Simulated scan of single mutants.
Amino acid sequence: MIDTPDTVSFGYTQVAPQEKTRRVGEVFASVAKRYDIMNDLMSAGMHRVWKDDFVRALKPRAGERILDMAGGTGDIAFRIARSGADVTVADINPHMLEVGIERAAKKGITSLVWREENAETLSFPDRSFDAYTIAFGIRNVTDIPAALSEAHRVLGFGGRFFCLEFSTTEWPGFGEAYDLYSEKLVPRIGKAVAGDADSYRYLIESIRRFPRMPDFAAMIEAAGFRNVKYRPILGGAVAIHSGWKV
Rank of each mutant, 00 (worst) to 15 (best):
K20Y: 10
P17A: 07
A218I: 00
G195S: 07
K20C: 13
D215H: 07
G235I: 11
W50N: 04
L185A: 13
A135H: 02
K191A: 14
E26C: 10
N118W: 04
T21W: 02
H95W: 10
D196L: 08
N118S: 07
Y35K: 01
I80A: 02
A223M: 14
D130R: 00
V31W: 00
G25P: 13
Y200W: 12
I207T: 08
E26R: 12
Y200P: 14
W114K: 09
V154K: 00
C163Q: 04
D215P: 06
P145A: 10
I76C: 15
M46V: 11
E183W: 03
P17S: 05
I240K: 13
W244N: 13
F28Q: 01
I76R: 15
H95M: 08
M42D: 03
V113K: 15
L122G: 01
S182G: 15
K245E: 01
L148P: 15
E117P: 14
T110V: 12
G224P: 01
F216H: 03
R48I: 13
I138S: 03
V99S: 12
F10T: 09
V55K: 08
R160G: 09
R160Q: 07
D130H: 04
Y230W: 13
G173P: 13
V27H: 00
F28Y: 13
T88V: 15
G74S: 05
G158R: 00
V193I: 12
M1H: 10
A197I: 09
